[in-house]
Amino acid sequence: MCTTCGCNGAVSHQHGHHPHASHDHEDQARILQVEQNILSKNDQYAATNRQMLSDHKVAAFNLVSSPGSGKTTLLVKTIQRLKDAARIAVIEGDQQTELDAQRIRETGVSAQQINTGKGCHLDAHQVGHALEHWSLDELDIIYIENVGNLVCPAAFDLGEAARVVVLSVTEGEDKPLKYPDMFYASDLMLINKIDLLPYLDFDVEKSIEYARRINPDIQVLQVSAKTGQGMDAWIQWCRQTKVSPARATVIPGEFVCNTAS
């Protein structure tokens, strides 16, 4: 098709309403139908990661949140509780520095740091390369700590078994409504820092209701990584997650809407 006049580009054809003299059909554009999702490449990498993880029976969890929600502390405490029962590794995503990976390594487990530079999220290709550092047969669980950002990581499947959005009570209960894409794409909402609830106006029930407006299937656990409150349920959730080549086969069980007390 000629993009100037919209005709099919045949030099010989005539139309009275529109002279072709002003442009040359010898050098005219043709229309190429593409019909391709621009995330299809990421999704292919994600499918490869998921298949590989599934083949080796490794459960990968993609932890997403805003900066400062306590993801790294949560991971450190999780590893301390779980490392005798499961073989764990961690992928850390940050724009800069090895600080988080160093904190993880101090617990004795292996951590790969991905610095995204100007990038605001991890993608499946980066995660695929990070996975090359391990022999997957020697692992049971990989935690992927995504870049602290409630917007961009929502669009990028990494090949994880389940996505966990961490919401700390210092952030306000309206976060699910403000950043709906992230809650739509997550399997579990982990409400963190609940030891601070007595000092804040955070409405736990409302935050759960908001999240379920967007994603009725989202599971909820309440924890304080600092005091250990609710951590047993979270650990059990990690251990009961089944790995499969299809996305998100977390078994919704008794931990749905667990109110840690």
Binding site: T3, A29, R30, Q33, V34, E35, Q36, N37, L39
Partner: peptide, 16 residues
């Protein structure tokens, strides 16, 4: 459930 509207797709290109 979202039926439509989550995707970003390159539909076509005008090329020479």
């Amino acid at each position: 459930d979202v039926v439509q509207g989550k995707d970003v797709r390159v539909k076509s290109l005008a090329v020479i």
